Simulated assay, not measured.
Amino acid sequence: MTPIKSPVKTEAGALSPDKEEAGTIQARAKEGMAGLAKGLAIIEAFGANTTRMTVSDAAHLADLSRPAARRCLLTLVDLGYLAHDGKFFTPLPRMLRLGSAYLSTSSLTQIAQPLLASARDRLQESVSLAVLDEGFAVFIARAEAVRIVSTGVKLGGRLPAYCSATGRVLLGGLPEQQMRAHLESVLMKRLTHRTVANLDGVLKAIRRAAEDGYAISDEELEIGMSAMAVPVKNSAGQIEAALSVSVFSGRVNIETLRENFLPTLRETAERLQRSL
């Protein structure tokens, strides 16, 4: 049997070479993971409302020091993820690889895409699939209707769960304590004069969505835009995703959503559930 080595110290009390090497590797691992976390925090700070940023912006949004933010940004430039014009940093197409790693390997998105396209063709409106991620509804699949002005968010887009139809369906799948803890921790803002942005009101909307089997957001995210969402459940009966349609309020009213759109959404969700 090979004897187990115990730590050996030199005369000066320093660790042996084996121990020093192990300590160095461990320190590098910690440093590397910290650096990766900082870089990912900056990447996640980019979005529809932050299409470019300075070093100061990145430091503020990712909660980093300016030197750390600058090193991360320049590293992302060197790797081809960002462009830099001397002041502003902006994402490059290579950034798409990060999201496509999930989208190209997720069976849920692969199964859903043809079903979303079929629902889009029947409704003549954009249809999307989203999952819950840290209090946001994140869109992982979408079939876009061809229009001069598009509706809703794009693939990979995020909406606050508390005031979106998709988010309320997804939050309804959480245990009561976890759902309430999330809502109590998030800063609710009135995005329009119709936004429900108080705890009691949002809880009521989530519970109603769970009871009805669908949720509607009527101009709560943006005036002139409405959405309807239904749950997609896995074989265990748990809500895994939400299927939604977004429309211009002037073209499709709430009653039409309930009468004409809801049956198609439910049918599509059921077909997707049978495939999971």
Rank of each mutant, 00 (worst) to 15 (best):
V146K: 10
T105Q: 08
A145D: 01
M53C: 03
L76G: 08
D63H: 01
S107P: 04
L116W: 09
V127A: 02
L96Q: 15
V127P: 01
T90N: 09
V146M: 12
L64I: 14
D85T: 13
K87D: 13
A141Q: 06
Q113F: 13
R97V: 05
T105M: 07
D63G: 00
L92V: 11
A137G: 04
M95E: 08
A117Q: 06
G135I: 08
G135Q: 07
R97F: 02
G135H: 02
D57P: 11
A58Y: 13
A130C: 00
K87V: 15
D78W: 08
L76K: 12
P67T: 10
P114W: 10
G86N: 06
A145L: 04
R70Q: 12
A83S: 15
S107R: 11
A117V: 03
F89G: 08
L79T: 05
A69R: 09
H84N: 00
Q113D: 13
M53I: 06
V55D: 02
D57R: 09
I111N: 03
Y81L: 03
L108N: 05
G135V: 04
G99F: 15
V138F: 10
L116P: 03
R94S: 06
D63P: 00
G80D: 05
A119T: 03
A68T: 15
Q113T: 14
G99L: 11
H84C: 02
L115V: 03
L92G: 09
D85H: 14
S104V: 00
G86I: 08
A62F: 13
L82T: 03
D121K: 04
C72A: 11
Y81H: 05
A68H: 15
P67M: 04
D121T: 01
R66K: 12
T51P: 14
F89D: 03
L98F: 11
R122N: 11
P93Y: 11
R97K: 00
D121M: 02
P67V: 08
H84M: 02
A83L: 13
A59S: 03
T54F: 15
H84L: 01
A145N: 05
L132M: 06
L115F: 07
P114G: 13
K87W: 15
G99S: 13
L64D: 09
A117I: 04
G99K: 15
Q110H: 09
R97Q: 02
L115S: 03
L64W: 15
T51Y: 15
T54H: 12
S128A: 12
R120F: 08
S100C: 06
R120V: 01
L82M: 04
P67G: 04
A117E: 02
R70G: 07
R122Q: 06
L76A: 10
Q113G: 12
R94I: 08
S65R: 06
Q113V: 11
